[in-house]
């Protein structure tokens, strides 16, 4: 199994009106020149490169992406954070298309990362599996799916909806605590160019776990309430998960 390396991008700036746009070159085997609002930003951008555009003023901008064989241009809106992706459509075409993906950069639960997978490849609708389980289903070219998952390394694959051999992967994908991990599936099976662009952005946290819950002040309930949780608490202190602790306690109670 191979691990997908992540393209580390600049974090968004803190200024009120600044935006961050990432141009993702998702067309295999060509070098692309990128212009924004008529000005050349970078030439010879290879496939899978991510070009950050920091502090682009919020609002509508023009982008032009060119090779010797084709040139496409479109408009996109710069909000707080977005990926502008050059990619082939679902079926064979003479020119690629450009799709803008807004990044959800709000805070995430402590211990979790936000995973977003975008379908920008020359394949029909597909499912995403993680550790063998279907995480998302029926994603078409130009669409994306998102989930917040515990920080871990997952074995991720893209498989055709309705079954068949994996179109991509399985590959090991690390999801870090407090991160947005964006995966763009690109390329075409017919020429063996199926691949993935992985981009990681930092996220804030929705907060550490509560340390106390004070929920009562009148002393009206029977003090001999539910059983005290001593055995489970001890098991947890030994590092057993809650599910494991409950299972162990059920076995202890039976014996």
């Amino acid at each position: 199994m191979t691990t997908l390396p992540a393209a580390q991008a600049q974090p968004p700036t803190a200024a009120a009106v600044s935006t961050t746009t990432y141009v993702v070159q998702g067309v295999p085997a060509v070098d692309v020149d990128i212009s924004i609002d008529g000005a050349l930003v970078q030439s010879g951008v290879a496939a899978k490169e991510v070009v950050p555009l920091d502090d682009l003023p919020a609002g509508i901008h023009e982008i032009e992406l060119s090779t010797d064989d084709w040139s496409v241009g479109t408009e996109f809106e710069a909000g707080s954070s977005q990926d502008v992706v050059l990619h082939w459509p679902a079926d064979a075409a003479d020119e690629p298309v450009v799709t803008t993906f807004a990044n959800a950069v709000g805070p995430v639960s402590s211990g979790e990362g936000r995973l977003t997978v975008a379908h920008t490849a020359v394949v029909p609708p597909a499912d995403i599996t993680a550790n063998g389980d279907t995480l998302f289903t029926n994603i078409a070219n130009g669409e994306f799916v998102s989930a917040e998952v515990p920080a871990d390394t997952y074995s991720v694959a893209v498989v055709p909806t309705g079954g068949g051999d994996p179109l991509l992967g399985p590959v090991d994908l690390p999801i870090a605590d407090g991160s947005l991990t964006r995966v763009f599936a690109i390329g075409a099976p017919r020429d063996g160019s199926m691949d993935a662009v992985v981009q990681v952005l930092p996220l804030g946290s929705t907060g550490a776990a509560p340390t106390s819950v004070d929920t009562g002040s009148a002393g009206l309930v029977d003090p001999a309430g539910p059983p005290t949780d001593v055995p489970v608490a001890l098991l947890v202190a030994l590092g057993v998960t809650l599910a494991g602790a409950l299972a162990l306690r059920r076995r202890l109670v039976r014996h």
Binding site: W70, E75, I139, A140, E143
Partner: peptide
């Protein structure tokens, strides 16, 4: 550019229906 530029309509990604 070496060839005429095709102007594409703006395209914003949508979440999959199953999302």
């Amino acid at each position: 550019p070496r060839v005429a530029t095709t102007t594409l309509p703006p395209s914003v990604a949508a979440p999959a229906a199953s999302q």
